[in-house]
Amino acid sequence: NQASVVANQLIPIQTALTLVMMRSEVVTPVGIPAEDIPRLVSMQVNRAVPLGTTLMPDMVKGYA
């Protein structure tokens, strides 16, 4: 099973992502693949992302 990127904390809207905000976890449905974590650093979320939420491509500006 492929690991996805999951929020390690509440990430407020417009926040630039850092490594400490994300973790990898095998979840359903599958979100952004964990191997993309380095690419996500400094990208902004376009909505508030609660703790434990799987990051989906449409939540990160410039990802999809």
Rank of each mutant, 00 (worst) to 15 (best):
I13Y: 14
Q14E: 15
V45I: 06
P33H: 08
V45S: 04
T53R: 11
S4I: 02
P57F: 07
S42K: 09
L17F: 01
A48H: 13
T28L: 11
A16N: 09
G62Y: 09
D36H: 13
S42R: 13
T15M: 09
V20E: 12
T28N: 14
K61P: 14
Y63H: 04
R23H: 05
V5F: 03
V5P: 02
P29K: 05
P33C: 07
A7M: 04
D36Y: 12
V49W: 03
G52K: 03
V5W: 03
S24T: 10
V60Y: 00
R47N: 07
P50L: 07
P50Q: 11
N1G: 14
D36F: 14
P57G: 07
L51H: 11
Q14N: 15
S42G: 15
M22C: 04
P38Q: 10
L19K: 08
P29M: 04
S42L: 09
M43K: 11
P33V: 07
V20T: 12
L17T: 00
T54H: 02
P57I: 06
G31A: 03
G31R: 00
L19F: 12
P12C: 05
E35D: 12
V5I: 14
I32V: 08
N46M: 12
T15L: 05
P57M: 06
V20G: 14
T54I: 09
V26L: 11
L51E: 13
I37R: 05
L19G: 05
I32T: 02
Q14T: 10
V41A: 05
V41F: 05
E25I: 06
P38V: 09
L19S: 09
V49L: 10
A7V: 07
L55T: 00
T18Y: 04
N8Q: 09
P33T: 07
S24Q: 08
V49Y: 03
A48S: 13
V20S: 15
P57T: 05
Q44W: 09
L55W: 02
P57D: 05
V41L: 13
A7D: 01
E35C: 06
G62S: 07
M43Q: 08
V5Y: 02
E25W: 06
N46I: 14
S24L: 07
D58P: 06
N46D: 10
Q14P: 02
S24W: 10
P29A: 04
I37Q: 04
K61N: 15
M43E: 04
R47E: 09
G31K: 02
S4T: 02
L55M: 13
T53Q: 10
S24G: 12
A48R: 11
A7E: 02
N46S: 13
T18C: 05
R47H: 10
L19T: 09
P38L: 12
I32G: 00
